[in-house]
């Protein structure tokens, strides 16, 4: 979680300095979901992600340096800078992409699960998506197909209450995402997405079910995006200040740190050590990306066709 948090804050800082092209959506505040789920996945398992996907990429094992350089558009990035923030792919760790299209990763995860199930290799797929995805046909079709074929896939909704500036309750009558699982005849469970231990426990059960051939699960993680929708959006015009403040108190990293200290599992100094260690790692990634050369225009037509 520290890695995701510091990575995003460093990206934010770099972006604000004006050297990074494009636009970015930060995962700050939602780290418990990616961390709790991906802890159960091996490099051979699959993940599909979203426009807010840096955290998923790191949690699934995309190297920090190459991720940083990719978001910066550098040729040393994991995809040569050709993709950027919303098109990060890494077959070496089963990362099937962040995605510029809301909900598109859902059926793709079902497909990866189908390939795994045909091989019978016990691997699973996880699809992360926001509340904005659940009213899209790709959600319905992707989950229904996975359920009909009993595929080894787990659907993880990061319900942060807003899709850009639109509150979820304004665009659907049924705001209980987990309850929608009933429509597909699969288990659905709503949890506190800012409690990494709860995410870890519930995701572990769902992933174990998937691996055992017992089919898909839908998990709704209640979480929040304390920052704006994209970097540059102050995120305050459409939400009460109290709501933002209240959710900041439920920061997933602070909560885990506090719980671990109270349980006597870790001393504050050790946590600071972790922070500093991650800080160095992120700084190296930043420097790596910064010092990377510009892309060569002659490569623009490479890789159009396989």
């Amino acid at each position: 979680m520290q890695r995701m948090r510091q990575f995003e804050l460093r990206i934010q800082q770099t972006y604000r300095s004006g050297v990074m092209p494009g636009f970015i959506h930060l995962y700050v505040g939602e780290e418990a979901v990616a961390a709790g789920v991906c802890a159960h996945l091996s490099r051979e398992d699959y993940v599909t992600s979203t426009h807010r996907g840096h955290g998923h990429a790191l949690a699934k094992g995309v190297p920090v340096k190459e991720a940083f350089a990719e978001i910066w558009g550098k040729p040393t990035g994991v995809n040569g800078g050709r993709g950027g923030s919303m098109h990060i792919y890494d077959p070496s760790c089963g990362f099937l992409g962040t995605n510029g299209i809301v909900a598109a990763g859902i059926p793709i995860a079902s497909g990866a699960a189908m390939a795994a199930s045909l091989r019978g290799d016990g691997h699973v797929a996880v699809s992360f998506f926001g509340d904005g995805a659940v009213n899209n046909c790709a959600f319905h079709e992707g989950i229904n197909l996975a359920a009909a074929l009993m595929l080894p896939v787990v659907f993880v909704c990061e319900n942060n209450l807003y899709a850009t500036e639109t509150p979820f309750h304004r665009v659907t009558r049924n705001t209980n995402v987990a309850s929608r699982a009933a429509a597909y005849g699969i288990p659905g469970i709503g949890i506190d997405g800012n409690d990494v231990l709860e995410v870890h426990r519930v995701a572990g059960e769902a992933i174990a079910r998937a691996r055992a051939g017992e089919g898909p699960t839908l998990i709704e993680c209640a979480t929040y995006r304390p920052l704006g929708h994209f970097e540059g959006d102050p995120g305050t015009g459409y939400r009460p200040k109290e709501e933002i403040a209240e959710w900041k108190l439920r920061d997933p990293i602070d909560r885990l740190a506090l719980a671990a200290m109270q349980a006597g599992l870790v001393a504050e100094a050790e946590l600071r050590d972790i922070e500093r260690q991650v800080e160095r790692e992120i700084e190296e990634a930043y420097e790596f990306a910064r010092l990377s050369p510009e892309a060569d225009a002659a490569t623009v037509t490479d890789f159009v066709y396989a």
């Binding site: 599909t48 089963g94 390939a115 197909l145």
Partner: peptide, 16 residues
Amino acid sequence: SELGQVGMGVGAAMAG
């Protein structure tokens, strides 16, 4: 589910 079918095809193709 045409979109779902093609989406599954994409994911399966990416997964070997």
